[in-house]
């Protein structure tokens, strides 16, 4: 991982809380551990408070009683997020994790959708992923083809899209993360995460914010040759998503 240049602590990264959001405090911690300042954003507010990037964290917003993310996309703040993410010139970097990814697809910032896991169960496991695209705003601290391990935990994690969309995503290099070695939930083409065309908006089902701090993450890392080589619960592969966006902001 290339060292960051300049002072990243000046970066302010918004973490949005919807009713039913669960991993907002975890995402804020990840932002802090990456060296930036987290800013709590409330779904009902009309202002992005001049943040430099936004994270839509995981959870069950509005209970996921309707399609996951279907109600949250109408939050007043989401209008601002969508407009900023699509602004010409310097679009706002946006990361959607799990439920946040589902919100991004409902908001049409990203294509496709998520349906129930193939086995119909909620699933919590440490998941190996291949980083397919290491040039987005959220993945530039990885190298293409690198393998990482971060937790996967969801009920509706199966990514689906029509064949044309899938071909387009593949052709444009917009498949950012792919499940490695085994497809845990039936996702089309083992897709775990994708980006928009500009690469500033990334969504993924696994949770990078749960692999950022030694002692509280997975028992392994993509760099390990074997399971368990990482000190107990000390896989921190997810941190690079958050340092990547800081790098993006510094370069910009």
């Amino acid at each position: 991982m290339a060292p960051l240049e300049g002072d990243a602590a000046g970066a302010r990264i918004g973490v949005v809380t919807f009713p039913g959001t669960l991993d907002d405090r975890d995402a804020a911690r990840a932002v802090r551990l990456a060296g930036a300042t987290p800013v709590n954003l409330w779904h009902g507010d009309g202002s992005l408070q001049d943040v430099d990037a936004v994270v839509l964290p995981g959870g069950f917003s509005y209970g996921d009683y309707l399609r996951a993310g279907a109600i949250s996309r109408f939050a007043p703040l989401m209008g601002k997020v969508t407009a900023a993410a699509e602004a010409p010139g310097s679009p706002l970097p946006v990361l959607g994790i799990c439920n946040g990814f589902q919100v991004l697809t409902e908001a049409h910032l990203l294509p496709g959708s998520m349906v129930k896991n193939e086995n119909l169960h909620f699933m919590c496991r440490d998941q190996k992923l291949t980083v397919e695209n290491a040039s987005t705003s959220w993945t530039n601290q990885f190298t293409a083809g690198e393998q990482i391990v971060i937790p996967l935990k969801n009920q509706d994690g199966q990514f689906i899209a029509d064949e044309h969309t899938l071909d387009q995503l593949e052709g444009d290099g917009r498949v950012v993360f792919r499940y490695a070695e085994s497809n845990p939930n039936g996702s089309r083409r083992s897709i775990a995460g994708i980006s928009n065309a500009a690469g500033n908006v990334v969504g993924l089902m696994p949770h990078p914010e749960h692999a950022v701090e030694p002692g509280f993450g997975p028992d392994s890392s993509g760099a390990d040759r074997r399971f368990g080589d990482t000190p107990l619960a000390s896989g921190t592969d997810g941190l690079s998503l958050f340092t990547s966006v800081l790098n993006t902001l510094l370069v910009a």
Binding site: L22, D26, H121, M123, C124, R125, K153, H207, V212, G215
Partner: peptide, 15 residues
């Protein structure tokens, strides 16, 4: 059983 439960949320689970 336990893989159907979230053990990571809140980021403070040490075991």
């Amino acid at each position: 059983v336990t893989n159907q439960y979230d053990r990571y949320v809140q980021g403070n689970t040490a075991l």
